[in-house]
Amino acid sequence: MRPAAPWRFARWGLGITAVALAVAVAQGAAADPLPTRPSGAQMPSRVVSINLCTDQLAMMLAAPGAGAKPGQLISVSTLASDPMSSSMAAEAAAYPANRGSAEQVFMMNPDLVLAGTFTSRATVDLLRRLGVRVVEIAPVTSLQGVSDQIRQVAAALGRFEAGEALVARFEADLAALAPPSDSQASRLRAALYYPNGYTIGKGTLSDDILARTGFINIATELGRAGGGNLAMELLVMAGPDLVVTSKPYPGASRSEALLRHPALAQLGAQDGQAALLATSDADWICGTPHVLRAVAEMRAAHQRAIAGPAAPMQSLP
């Protein structure tokens, strides 16, 4: 549609800006041959990770620096050094942290950015427009998926051997944590209950951890898929044998205060079965080999519960 003449003059300024932008975008695309070409044996040398899970896999897989020369991985996200979220907070302290903004990441002059598929669309699009190669990694939804995830990140980094070695170690360790015998008697019902009444159901890594360690997830029982809120009433009515929850953050929030609701505490007193189990979220969040610690912990919780309902469990502080 063609605007009337006076409008065209009024829009001159805007039009010029739009053309300049379009040219800039075209140049950006031209200067970035990587997205169209498979990475092959090419090994990126300045990798920035802006996602908690890729942070941890990259730290485990990237080539180390030699002498004064920095390693392949030059920065991880700030979350990686938060012990509440990251299993590798200590290791992450050795890397410069980024807050994941396109501007900050671009100024680090990376030749590869590792992001999650839930990373802000605007950030990923802008980085690509600026000619940076961005590889997006989807969240892992099962324990089996961890191996694929390791291979994906290893391929992006060009570190195939390191990737295969880590996969082999992970699969051996996972096999060593044999699931409990699948008799009806040994099946216990567990609830994942987090701040704001958030729970996690079918098709998630957490659900798979429960399933593998002899628990039935009540959210899955209730037909919930993925994450979502579960009213406390429904949790109480489901009467789980075990409630898995998170450690509180410093400072106060109403979202976490919910976990100290008297109804939850009394749920444990009902039949001597249910008990709260404070657990570190960090090992549950990402599909890295650290998830095995969560598997081992839940397996131990299952064995304690089977051994005797009165066995004392770690309770929420």
């Binding site: 704001n196 953050y249 400072g251 929030s253 109403r254 979202s255 976490e256 008297p262 109804a263």
Partner: peptide, 25 residues
């Protein structure tokens, strides 16, 4: 400014109010 990541999301609660999941405490 709270160190708690959930606190900022609760601005709406403090401005609009809710009785969900209150207890005898």
């Amino acid at each position: 400014l709270s160190p708690n990541p959930f606190a900022a999301a609760e601005i709406v609660y403090w401005m609009m109010g809710s009785l969900a999941d209150r207890s005898f405490t």
